[in-house]
Design a protein around this nucleic acid. Structure first.
Lengths: 344, 344
DNA sequence: TTGTACGCGTTATCAT
DNA sequence: ATGATAACGCGTACAA
């Protein structure tokens, strides 16, 4: 009873309701909405009025079912808290929005099994395309994805064998390059601190270690990692570990991301260790703070927004049958040398 | 032709396909999926095998249409880049996931008009509930929301007249309290820097100014704002503005968020201004870095994750007909005094 | 416990 | 340019 007082408790208007109000057939209403050019101006006006007065909102489920077009792009990222994905998502949302696609976003918590479950959930929404992070899917997940027969873009890293399309860069090469650059600035004893250790962080570490190994500079005691999620606090802890492992001799550290690097920097300040004269620090991802902190932080800049944009564009191109120029894109990166590493 | 080579290009399996393969009726398959307890073990096994071998994934559009249950919660936030929403979203996703709800997330770019459009888009997906930021909706948006007849939670700030449910805190009171605390630490000339200036930032500013006004300490020249999006770089610029507007006399600044505060801190360091002895700084939102930076940053801590959790919980309670204990929750905040403000 | 018939709201197809 | 009819894939209601 009480609930019946507002007419808002009456059922949502349907195409048929609008059609009745406008004295036309349902399909005409549908056309006004989806192919306005195929309807005469007179009917268009009548229908539009009925739509407005009824507050009609199309039922996308019915539309999807009838047209097998959901207008949804599924997106899988490993973590909602990791700021790195903010920019990527922004790029995806921007392009998707422009193309009138909705984004269904899920968080896999860095777990391939959870990813598999989430992909199943996404696929049940009949997405027209998927964007998924990295290449670490379960077999079953890969199978679902390929059976879905929709465009799939794997992002964040370049893959040897993408499921379909791919936008990213080589974390291995980036790590390798960082080692080389740090050596060039005169570092002698290099360490690495890494948290979370997902496949991409591992690649950075592998590249870094390979470069050192090739030059006979690798001391694996100075490679300190933890599966814990990355944080500033952790950066401080890991810094202490490396310093003590090196007996105080480490003079350059590659931090697997800028959180860790900032933590290491703050901790250095507290320990009265001069950066960069006593200790060089290099981060990864180039957060905004890295450029402004004192001393400013050398970091690996990655065009994350552009990566999101590119991924979404490749999908739209594909969906609109414009064949995308490339099915695999290396978006690159740039090591930005700042005050936390010595001038060469 | 080429496209026909993989059987993956054949159509997605349906309930009927599974039913045929398992030699049962469609409804039985549906029951295995949704009410497994109502099916005999034998049939359950047969059906499950058919499901697995066909790689059947339910069509949520059809399900939504038939049951008018979409399993979707719509979420509106004003910005994907603003880190503040990460934690809130994490809370929402966690609780929603546990309740087997999917989240459809949209970004309104701080524009009520875009919000209205996005809400329309969300509603077309027949969400079972909505979470929306703040109370600054257009009339038309409010109407749609109430006509949708679903639980709606407005988050991030406490509202006088919520559309439905509400979780947040008083930004006005927080700003007021900051002024009081800064005065208590011995500041004489207080300024404010604010960016973006959405309604919540305005509330913080209003509260701050009111406290100063009441104590005859308000110098409106020292209230410096810009509609530009907040950033660390901007914090530095705004700091300079306030300092010059005050003729160098400002000795305490409330920054509308931690980005700005960090920018102000970094700039102070470059200008050789001692924090807090010459200048006290207080931020807002208490990012992780604020606790570790040197000097550590006084800031207003807000339980964002908890806010997201609470909002989602209120919705689940409502959807499961457990009447929620409260329809409006003040999640509170805490001013965390650190090194960037003097000890009292 | 299992099945049949029908409807959910929309669009595709084919007519007019 | 407009309309009638039949899907789309699933769940509800009821029947057996």
């Amino acid at each position: 009873m009480a609930g019946r007082t507002r007419n808002s408790s009456s059922k949502r208007a349907t195409l048929a309701d609008v059609a009745r109000a406008a004295n036309v057939s349902a399909i005409t209403v549908s056309r006004v909405l989806n192919h306005p050019d195929k309807v005469s101006d007179e009917l268009k006006n009548r229908v539009q009025q009925a739509i407005d007065s009824l507050g009609y909102i199309p039922n996308q489920s019915a539309s999807s079912l009838a047209s097998s077009k959901s207008g949804v792009i599924g997106v899988c990222i490993p973590s909602l808290s990791n700021v790195v994905f903010n920019d990527v998502l922004r790029g995806i949302y921007q392009v998707a929005g422009e193309g009138n696609y909705k984004v269904l976003l899920v968080d896999t918590h860095y777990s391939p099994l959870e990813e598999e479950k989430m992909v199943r959930t996404l696929l049940s929404q009949s997405p027209e395309a998927m964007i998924i992070t990295g290449g670490d899917q379960t077999r079953s997940c890969e199978r679902m994805l390929s059976q879905a027969n929709i465009p799939v873009v794997q992002i964040m890293e370049t893959l040897e064998q993408p499921l379909d399309m791919n936008v990213g860069f080589s974390h291995y090469q980036a790590g390798y390059d960082v080692a080389v650059r740090l050596l060039e600035t005169g570092c002698h004893t290099l360490g690495f601190i890494g948290a979370r250790m997902d496949t991409r962080v591992q690649q950075r570490m592998n590249g870094f270690m390979a470069a050192l190994q090739e030059r006979d500079r690798l001391d694996s005691k100075l490679i300190v990692t933890t599966p814990q999620p990355s944080s500033i606090a952790l950066g401080g802890e890991l810094l202490r570990s490396v310093i003590s492992a090196s007996g105080g001799k480490v003079d350059g550290i590659f931090c697997c991301n800028d959180d860790l690097a900032m933590g290491a920097l703050f901790e250095s300040q507290r320990m009265n260790i001069q950066v960069p004269s006593q200790l060089a620090l290099c981060g990864f991802n180039d957060f905004e703070a890295s450029a402004y902190i004192n001393p400013s932080l050398t970091s690996v800049h990655v065009p994350r927004f552009e990566m999101g944009v590119k991924a979404a564009q490749m999908i739209l191109d594909q969906l609109q049958e414009r064949v995308p120029a490339n099915r695999q894109v290396d978006i690159g990166y740039e090591i930005v040398m700042r005050q936390s590493t010595a001038v060469v």
